[in-house]
C-alpha cells in the first residue's frame, strides 16, 4: 500500500513538474528599455526544479509580451492582437515558440534575480530578470504572417 502511495506521489509530482512550465501568471514587471527595440522585465517562475522555474518565468514573460502587453512599458499593448484566434490559427508556431523554448532566439539575457525557493507553495519559486529583443520578435511574427507589417 505504502509503495502505491509513493508511486502515485512520484507520478503526481512529475506531472506537476511537466505542467509547471505552462503556468501563466501576470507576474511580469517592466524594468526598463534603455536600448531601442529591447525590453527588460522581471518575471515570476514556478517549477519543482530551478531549471523548470526559470523556463516558466521566461515563457511567462514572452506570453505576457505577446498576448497581454507589459504595463508601464512602450509595449503595453499586446504584440499579437486577438491572441486566442492567433494561437488557434498558428498553433505550430506558438507551440515551437513558447512550449519548445523557441523564444530563446529573442532572449538577450536571462538571469535569476532571486534565490530558488522550492519549498514555497503559495508564492513563486524564482524571480527571473530578462532582456528581450522585441524588434527581432516582431519581425519574426511578421515574416510568419502572425501579425501584419506596419500599416493596413
Amino acid at each position: 500500500m505504502k509503495v502505491q502511495y509513493l508511486l502515485a506521489a512520484v507520478i503526481l509530482s512529475a506531472l506537476m513538474a511537466c505542467n509547471s512550465s505552462k503556468i501563466v501568471t501576470g507576474e511580469v514587471n517592466y524594468i526598463d528599455s534603455q536600448e531601442p527595440g529591447t525590453i527588460q522585465v522581471s518575471a515570476a517562475g514556478y517549477g519543482a526544479t530551478k531549471k523548470a522555474a526559470i523556463e516558466n518565468a521566461e515563457r511567462n514573460a514572452f506570453y505576457n509580451l505577446l498576448f497581454k502587453g507589459i504595463p508601464g512599458s512602450q509595449y503595453n499593448l499586446p504584440m499579437v492582437p486577438d491572441g486566442d484566434k492567433a494561437q488557434a490559427k498558428h498553433k505550430r508556431y506558438f507551440t515551437e515558440l513558447l512550449d519548445e523554448a523557441g523564444y530563446k532566439r529573442f532572449m538577450m539575457h536571462s538571469e535569476p534575480n532571486s534565490a530558488f525557493r522550492p519549498q514555497v507553495r503559495s508564492g513563486e519559486n524564482v524571480q527571473n530578470y530578462l532582456k528581450i529583443d522585441v524588434t527581432s520578435l516582431r519581425r519574426d511574427l511578421e515574416s510568419h504572417q502572425i501579425i501584419r507589417k506596419f500599416g493596413y
Binding site: S73, Q74, N76, R148, F150, Y152
Partner: peptide
Amino acid sequence: CEGLVEEFLNTLQSKFDEIV
C-alpha cells in the same frame, strides 16, 4: 522620444488593425 515613438506606433497599428 525614447519609448514614446514605439508606443505611439503600436497604438497607431492597433487603429490600423481596427480599420482593417
